[in-house]
Computed example of a mutant assay.
Amino acid sequence: MFDLDRLWQLMEGPTAVVLQRASGVAAIVLAAVILLKVADRLITRFFDLARIEDHKKKTLETLFRSGARYSIYLLAFLTVLPVLGVNVTALLASAGIVGLAVGFGAQSLVKDLITGFFIIFEDQFRVGDFVQINEKVSGTVEELGLRMTTIREWSGAKYYIANSEIKTVRNYNREQLRAIVTATFPFEENPRLIREVLEQVCREVEREYYDDFLPGENGLAEPPQIYGVTDIDKSERGAQFTIIAKTKPASLWKIERILRERIWLACQERGIKLAYPRRIYEGWSEAEAGRPLPGD
């Protein structure tokens, strides 16, 4: 027969304390999970209604999610401590001493948070921007938080970079970019013919890929054009022509690839040679080998 008295005694002993604490912790964890879901929905709803640029919206949304998540975790942790019998007041009182010791180990974390704040505040880059970090890592910003930034390379590799490690940023998503393509031709080629061919390439690319260039008040802001001869003495291979054009951020590399290919094809069709490394060897023929050198 079920002994109610025995069950009641167990509920009043150590077992009761364990059960009470376990149920309290479970309730707090459940509440934290619910708060996380509610906060996530509220943030999503807020930014769906907000009139903000898409890139900036993604960045701020990620930041708000990160802040809400850390805040709920901290609140849940501080709420669980009293349930487990920890004196929070005494813990906070000793935080000064412990904080001094931990502070030396948390310096990098503080630097990450401060740097992350200024990256977002100064709008150095946003989620979705294509950037180059520290002249080494290039890719699309997938996440931007107060502590860490994640970059996805074109190859698919994903980099996690602490914000304090970000020293230089090259952003390729700032309204306008200039495509710069160079082509070098041997000195023996006719520069007037080269200019004619390059001009033809510029007009063809402008006509076929008009929507990829940056619009201006009257047509394009800077259509494909020959900037001029930019090198005749530094390169031993020949003279260097440069073509420039202002493009939309997403079309920079596309236009540069197309210009290079069209220049190559046009030069082949017109019989113009592109420069390449060459070496000239001078030697003696058999007849000259037996002759005495001048002065002998």
Rank of each mutant, 00 (worst) to 15 (best):
Q132L: 13
N163V: 00
T184S: 11
W284F: 14
E153K: 08
R69E: 04
G96K: 05
R147L: 13
A239M: 15
I52K: 06
V18D: 10
A179S: 14
G105W: 10
I243L: 14
G145D: 03
G228A: 08
P277M: 04
Y281W: 02
A27F: 11
T115S: 15
L214P: 00
R152V: 08
T149W: 03
G85I: 05
L193E: 15
E282P: 00
V137Y: 05
G145M: 01
G216M: 09
D5S: 03
E286I: 11
R45C: 07
E122L: 13
N190S: 11
L60R: 01
E12S: 12
E142V: 13
V181Y: 05
A157E: 14
Q176R: 15
R174M: 13
Y70N: 15
A250T: 13
D112A: 06
D40K: 09
P224V: 09
Q200S: 14
G96M: 05
T184W: 06
A95G: 14
G85R: 02
E53L: 01
E175H: 13
L75P: 01
G139T: 01
T59D: 02
R203C: 06
L63M: 04
G85E: 02
L81N: 00
L74E: 06
E175D: 15
S138K: 15
E269Q: 14
A31M: 09
V88S: 00
N163R: 05
E12Q: 14
E206R: 14
V201I: 04
S164Q: 10
I151F: 12
F64E: 06
L144N: 00
L19Q: 11
T182Q: 15
R152C: 04
G24I: 05
L214A: 07
G99C: 02
S66M: 04
Y281C: 03
P215G: 10
A183Q: 06
Y276V: 02
E142A: 07
S66V: 02
P249K: 08
K167L: 06
D211N: 11
L84V: 01
G145E: 04
L146F: 07
I114S: 13
T62D: 01
K246N: 13
V38Y: 02
Y276T: 01
G67V: 02
R69H: 07
L78I: 13
L19N: 10
T140E: 15
M148D: 07
K37M: 12
R45L: 08
V137R: 03
I272C: 10
